[in-house]
Design a protein around this nucleic acid. Structure first.
Lengths: 185, 185
DNA sequence: ACCTGAACACCGTTCAAGT
DNA sequence: ACCTGAACACCGTTCAAGT
């Protein structure tokens, strides 16, 4: 049976989870699919496009707060579940950070937050900036955390990890307090 | 004359600024130094170590607020000058983000902030978390901004950029307000 | 429509041997 | 001490040709 885009995506995610981003090469993926490297380029224009698809499928796991949630409730919940999703995939934070930065694919996981903030009366441009703040904060901390975990696993550094979930919660709390103070909501 | 570590570093920075991170390869660097690729490994153990050195030299450009600055003054100043420094080097944000995340080298540019916050009465662990929040926020926005600028330059997307300096200023302001509210300073 | 075969133009890193 | 020569084990991507 012929390969589908979905088959390629599924196998790419499998390689990512099992061996990590460094081992997710087009050649390795092709081998895992029992196909020649060139075959992948019929399904995806290039590696970036494939990585964008993998990232999208990871970000789709983050639960949407829905349109009726309270912004100050949804903000920490969203950030913490984004963190969990990123940590659930090997190199999830690294992959997502670069994909989001390079604006590959859809990849606007902060969109629900923007809507909630706007509904709460924050001007659109500010809502956008606030949601981005929360996103970068979460991505950055997850990136630190995941690479530290990797360094510990490799025995490069010792494992006296600060509690990163608390750290993220604190950062998000500061932002939320700032939003309340600045926009009076 | 024999190559020094400093010579290699200087040429690496030159290639970065002129051609970008993708072109900063050990082989290209060796060629630019009129030397065989293997020669570089006498001066730097590997590419990561070299990139850490490059990042350190970039981050050294960020002015230190000094121990007597007011935290709420130093916070936005520091963030904005970090942003300027990152944007002043081609792919500066990308390089720094990954170097900071991978904990290469010294690379704790947020250290002055941690000290200022501690002096102002914030508990050390919280001061650390706050400074990291500011760092990730700045890195994340600079990364977005720089990759967007690159996409515009390549003609991939149109150039209706939001003002990123204002965006960073807003995010930092939210964090500062949050710190005031939460720690009563 | 979908894939193979084969090539092009690269990488980072190692290491014996030279000076 | 510092570097060369040469290799090892890879990359992403392209594209004529096959089925």
């Amino acid at each position: 049976m012929a390969l589908s885009r979905a088959d390629v995506l599924a196998k790419a995610l499998e390689i990512l989870d099992t061996y990590g981003l460094a081992d997710l090469t087009m050649r390795r993926l092709a081998t895992a699919l029992a196909v020649q490297p060139g075959a992948l380029y019929w399904h995806y224009a290039n590696k970036q496009e494939l990585l964008a698809a993998v990232t999208d499928s990871i970000l789709a796991e983050v639960p949407d707060p829905g349109p009726d949630a309270a912004w100050n409730d949804a903000l920490p919940t969203w950030a913490l579940s984004l963190r969990s999703v990123l940590l659930a995939h090997r190199d999830g934070a690294e992959l997502t950070s670069s994909a989001v930065a390079l604006s590959l694919g859809t990849l606007r996981p902060q969109e629900p937050l923007v809507r909630l903030l706007s509904s709460a009366g924050v001007p659109p441009a500010d809502a956008e900036a606030i949601a981005e703040t929360a996103l970068h904060l979460t991505l950055g901390l997850a990136l630190d955390e995941q690479s530290r975990a990797q360094a510990v696993a490799l025995g490069v550094i010792g494992g006296d990890a600060p509690d990163d979930q608390d750290r993220l919660a604190l950062g998000i709390d500061l932002v939320a307090r700032g939003v309340s103070a600045r926009f009076g909501i």
